[in-house]
Design a protein around this nucleic acid. Structure first.
Lengths: 150, 150
DNA sequence: AGTTTCCTCGTGTGAATATTCATAGATATT
DNA sequence: AATATCTATGAATATTCACACGAGGAAACT
């Protein structure tokens, strides 16, 4: 059901101005779909819809204009030394094999990533400060993917 | 209004079994209070009420019996080296006597505290990243208590 | 081997609840 | 008084919690 429903949502918001999830829910019902607000909240996130202004103070759900972030490419010395990556707010905590933290941090520094303000390293732990929470989450995910592909 | 309302809530849950916030809302209305679910959700947090089981799978709001969190126990080597603990958002900054930071940090690491993502240490300062602000505040308080009791 | 039974997971979901977002009304502060 | 903060709040939305259901195994049995 989920796929059909999400297609229906895309179709609906393409046709009409939807101001609230409640309203979207009504329209879905008319189209024969049964769901709750919680469910379409999740649909909206998965579809990456955004609620934006139109004209005079009126909201409306739309497809996000998706612009890909340029993905930083890491050399293997970095990724092979990383054990685990965690995030809290805008801080990345990167665990490395013992003794590698300094090297990895130096490498990260040298890449001059736009969204990393700086980092400090101990023996097996690096703390990196990202520009904001979004950047932190994004970088963490990228790093984790690098690890998984080893 | 807020105080009266919260008193009313305490009174109501003392008298009757309240299973949901919706139900509490009804009872408040009958008592002449006007509010929404969002508001009593906040009231409940402020009053530190908890939703607990009674008998057969039935929920009920009650005043929390304040039981201390299982406090991680630190060995004295840690606590005796700590001078001061400060928090900013999810970051703990722990000041130690000169030269002790590495040792204390190592010790903290070894405890594998669930809510500490990791930490790095210089000579007399440790920066530890907590999972979130709540965890940071809680740990800071715990550490401070340890210091005070020296 | 083929099947059956029993797990264990993952996924999707609604109900309940918490949180975000925007404002209105107090309360300083200049 | 005008302006800047707080505080409390409702509407909208997101998240938590509990559960149902189906897809893979793995073990037990035939």
């Amino acid at each position: 059901m989920k796929n059909k429903r999400q297609e229906a949502i895309l179709s609906i918001i393409a046709r009409s101005d939807v101001e609230t999830q409640e309203q979207l829910l009504d329209l879905l019902n008319q189209a024969g779909f049964r769901a709750t607000q919680a469910t379409i909240s999740r649909d909206i996130r998965e579809l990456k819809l955004v609620k934006s202004m139109t004209g005079r103070g009126i909201y409306r759900y739309e497809r996000a204009v998706r612009q890909e972030q340029p993905i930083p490419k890491f050399n293997s010395a970095v990724t092979e030394s990383i054990v685990r990556v965690e995030v809290s707010l805008n801080i990345l905590v990167i665990h490395t094999y013992s003794g590698m933290a300094q090297a990895v941090a130096a490498c990260l520094d040298s890449m001059k990533l736009e969204n990393i303000l700086g980092c400090v390293a101990g023996d097996d732990t690096i703390m990196a400060v990202a520009r904001d929470e979004r950047a932190a989450a994004l970088l963490a995910e990228t790093l984790r993917n690098m690890i998984h592909t080893l």
